[in-house]
């Protein structure tokens, strides 16, 4: 796999992405089979047991995972090219990492505050909007969402200290 890194601009080669994914899928299938076997994967007197359907599903996953892994190993890495280039990976991470942080922050600040911060940060950082413009989008959107969920439809979403100050 080392030679793949010679490709200009390629962060991850298509070949290694194929192999890693196929191996993960195979492992997933194996776990499914293992747990299904634990609860019984036979054919009882009146039809299949709880585990038998997932067991065979797991088996098919393992088989297709192995076949995909092997064919990925045999494929020509030059022909396959890159899974993702450095620049592309940077762009994807620019969304993915803030999204992960956003989702993690919800637990502390509640969903409305986290969402407002996320929208402001994203707009300023990615869209190069001014702080005022960003706030003017983020705050009304979240106030609207707050009223819609908490007040009109009375669906409680995760809330934090700010909402608690208003008695929610």
């Amino acid at each position: 796999m080392q030679d793949n890194h010679n490709n200009e601009g390629g962060a991850i080669s298509q070949k290694s992405a194929e192999i890693v994914t196929a191996i993960i899928i195979t492992l997933f299938g194996a776990i499914v089979m293992w747990d299904s076997n634990r609860i019984g994967a036979g054919w009882g007197s009146d039809g299949p047991e709880s585990g038998s359907f997932p067991f065979y599903v797991g088996l098919l996953i393992v088989i297709s995972g192995i076949v995909t892994t092997i064919s990925a190993f045999r494929a020509d890495s030059k022909e396959l090219g890159d899974f993702v280039e450095h620049e592309q990976l940077r762009m994807v991470m620019a969304v993915l990492i803030p999204s992960i942080v956003y989702v993690a922050v919800i637990g502390f600040t509640g969903i409305y505050v986290a969402s407002a911060i996320f929208i402001i940060a994203f707009m300023m950082w990615q869209g190069k909007f001014s702080a005022i413009k960003s706030i003017l989008v983020a705050v009304p959107v979240n106030v609207f969402l707050f009223f819609m969920f908490e007040v009109w439809f009375t669906i409680p979403l995760p809330k934090g200290p700010l909402e608690a100050m208003f008695g929610y």
């Binding site: 969304v95 956003y102 637990g107 969903i111 969402s115 996320f118 869209g127």
Partner: peptide, 26 residues
């Protein structure tokens, strides 16, 4: 896109939460 993307993500998060009232789903 830089305005709509974060809003879509917020809607995705809220949507996932409301399905089962669980952070785990998000």
């Amino acid at each position: 896109f830089s305005i709509i993307a974060p809003v879509i993500l917020v809607i995705c998060a809220i949507g996932s939460y409301t399905v089962g009232n669980a952070m785990f789903d998000v």
